[in-house]
Design a binder for these strands. Structure first.
Lengths: 245, 245
DNA sequence: TAGTGGTCTAGACCACACA
DNA sequence: GTGTGGTCTAGACCACTAC
């Protein structure tokens, strides 16, 4: 048992099992929030020992795709509010703890992807996209302007109303209404001067220094889901980053 | 075997072993760059099975304190150039790969810690510290001004000449000459306007937008080793950050 | 009490490095 | 060939959850 035909490639068994599990997650076989079979069962299903199965699951838990709860089971992770705030929102009031922001939709339009957005999303320059401008307020003060671009094909049928009346976060909307789960993101930061477009909604003077964040968010298969440029007024807030190992 | 007196606390065996290993690393029992005993031996030494020993080592490898090399052994990680560039230097030319910067010492003085530095380093306000100002050039262009503060007790005897003539990086100097190993860091970023102090060495106009990075670097025992404020000209460079899970 | 994940064992065999 | 880490097994028992 456990070393036969299935491992034709040079990959170790736990990698093969992991890849199969990712496949099952990406295909929706185990929907977000659902529980996986017990580890003993999963091990039998994949023809490996429990130790090997656990090694595969360990790695998915580490990557945040699964969540283990002792005594209860293993679950497909969802973009619940806690998780999102923790992983994808790195702006905090200076010297304080994280606070959940409120949002206000400034603009919602369908149009052609520009050069940069097209490149970041892996689309043609004249592909249709949704362009969304969103204001984030922290403790009632306007702090961030988000400019979001997503592929109109991938998010077919998205409307301003739907976007505005979403019950949770934007990534929760992507997940629940379009089956698009963001699992990681890559950000690039610069300092810039506020243009009128950004100084007005942020209620600051034009040319004030702003933190610009350019983010690509990726799904299960490392496919780019969203391109976002954020402008942050850092006079009372800051971006934080942990450098491990 | 393997579940006796040693595990008096509620901790699982692999955690106990991990803590003991960290202790051994912090105390210099296994110096940076040296190799650990073979896993089989280590397992015997600590009275656990090889699987359990590996779990402890796995976690230290993940945290970057140890490095495994199949067929050769397990080594205490050093601040070699590759590693440092990878983990602690997040500024890249826009859209390009990482490049190693060169540096120029602008100022080196011994003085009293200010409020913020004292707080970040866990010192009294009037403690003695070294204050160092350093210019970083990337592809011969001045891009970053670093303002570094370290405890004069911890780095007793540090001189400008020693600092300037270090063969490698600053963190390598801390490690080789003072036994201070940086294992993680925490950064907070803001946009600000360039003061004359920073605009001059960076050869930009005063009031240009700059990215300010405030970093605390920690050692094995989570003790703050260095407080650093960096000012980055992001007109041709950017800070990048990966958001996992 | 039954079901889940969490820890641990005591090996075996494989892949790689080096002499 | 010898020694190293890398993978894998087939269980056992513990801790937690829910009924």
């Amino acid at each position: 048992m456990g070393g036969q035909l299935e491992f034709a490639r040079g990959l170790p068994a736990y990698r093969v099992v992991k890849d199969r599990l990712i496949q099952a997650l990406a295909s929706g076989h185990y929907p977000a929030g659902s529980s996986l079979p017990a580890e003993k069962l999963l091990a039998e299903e994949h023809g490996v020992s429990i130790g090997t199965l656990r090694k595969a699951v360990d790695s998915l838990v580490f990557e945040g795709l699964l969540i283990r709860q002792q005594g209860k089971g293993t679950f497909v992770s969802q973009h619940d509010n806690q998780r999102l705030l923790y992983y994808y929102f790195h702006i905090v009031p200076q010297g304080k703890q994280k606070v959940r922001p409120t949002t206000k939709l400034l603009r919602f339009q369908r149009g052609r992807a520009g050069d940069e957005a097209a490149q970041r999303l892996g689309l043609g320059v004249s592909s249709w996209v949704f362009k969304i401008r969103n204001l984030l307020l922290i403790e009632s003060k306007p702090v961030i302007v988000d400019e979001i671009v997503v592929d109109a094909m991938r998010f077919e049928g998205l409307t301003a109303r739907q976007f505005e009346s979403r019950p949770g976060s934007i990534y929760q909307l992507y997940e629940s209404d379009f089956g698009q789960t963001v699992v990681r993101a890559s950000e690039r930061l610069r300092a810039c001067s506020a243009s009128q477009e950004h100084s007005k909604p942020l209620a600051i003077e034009s040319d004030s220094p702003l933190l610009q964040i350019r983010r690509v968010a990726y799904g299960f298969r490392d496919d780019p889901i969203e391109w976002r440029v954020s402008y942050v007024n850092t006079s009372e807030h800051e971006y934080f980053s942990e450098l491990n190992s």
